[in-house]
Nucleic acid binder design. Structure first.
Lengths: 121, 121
DNA sequence: CATAGGCATTCACAGCTGTCAATATAGATA
DNA sequence: TATCTATATTGACAGCTGTGAATGCCTATG
């Protein structure tokens, strides 16, 4: 029930909300949360997110990500940008290479919003 | 890490997956999960979902849902169908009225997949 | 400098999505 | 049966989305 302040995107701020099962979302809240889900709601971006999030060190180089897909480099770059703009990935350029890091707090917030239950399936 | 069998849609079955942060999703897994997120990734459907899920009794009548939006009845019906087809809502017709119920297990699975963390923000 | 490699951006296009008006369907009731 | 009410379906359309080809930008290294 306690509302938590989470950081969104390069410099945005969003006041988030209790779990779906606890209280109806306001239209404003829904308008803030939906873009995060939209960003995740694509098979390629889901795989990108899990590749980055589960990578040793919590970071993955784009060079590694490109090779995991049968898609063009611009397409992968586009998907990474969508995740970054949504505030789900951090970007970090070191030398020639660009590294992305998952924002665990954002994922945790989203997860708690959607299904906050101790009982497993 | 343990894979759990969850029920999807009117009669579908889906083998689900460990949290994004634990292990990369396979393409097949991503293809199965993405539609669920797509269904949720709309402000209207998010509000519909939370209205139903947080309704006393866990059930909500369409007649109540329509009045909560500034949208036409067919549009609400369309969004409910999307959530139903994705396996996130159950439908139940009693007399003239139709009641929808949230599938808590599905929401819990999705939530655990996205952000399974004890640490709050 | 100049060149090469890693990644982002632009442009273009087919396919999908949210919306409403019109219409259909199903159940209750007269 | 006829009619009314609640919900679903169909058809149409503007706007968005995922994709690749071509190109640009930055950084390291000759």
């Amino acid at each position: 029930m306690s509302k938590s302040l989470i950081v969104l995107g390069p410099a945005e701020t969003v006041l988030c909300c209790p779990p779906l099962t606890v209280q109806p979302l306001s239209q404003d809240q829904a308008d803030q949360v939906a873009p995060l889900l939209r960003a995740l709601a694509d098979p390629v971006r889901l795989r990108l997110m899990s590749l980055v999030a589960s990578h040793p060190g919590g970071e993955a180089c784009v060079c590694d990500l490109n090779s995991a897909f049968d898609l063009s480099q611009p397409t992968i770059s586009h998907h990474l940008k969508v995740l970054y703009d949504a505030g789900l990935l951090d970007r970090n350029k070191r030398g020639i290479w660009v590294y992305y890091r998952a924002r665990a707090e954002q994922l945790a917030s989203l997860g708690a919003l959607i299904g906050y239950t101790a009982a497993s399936v």
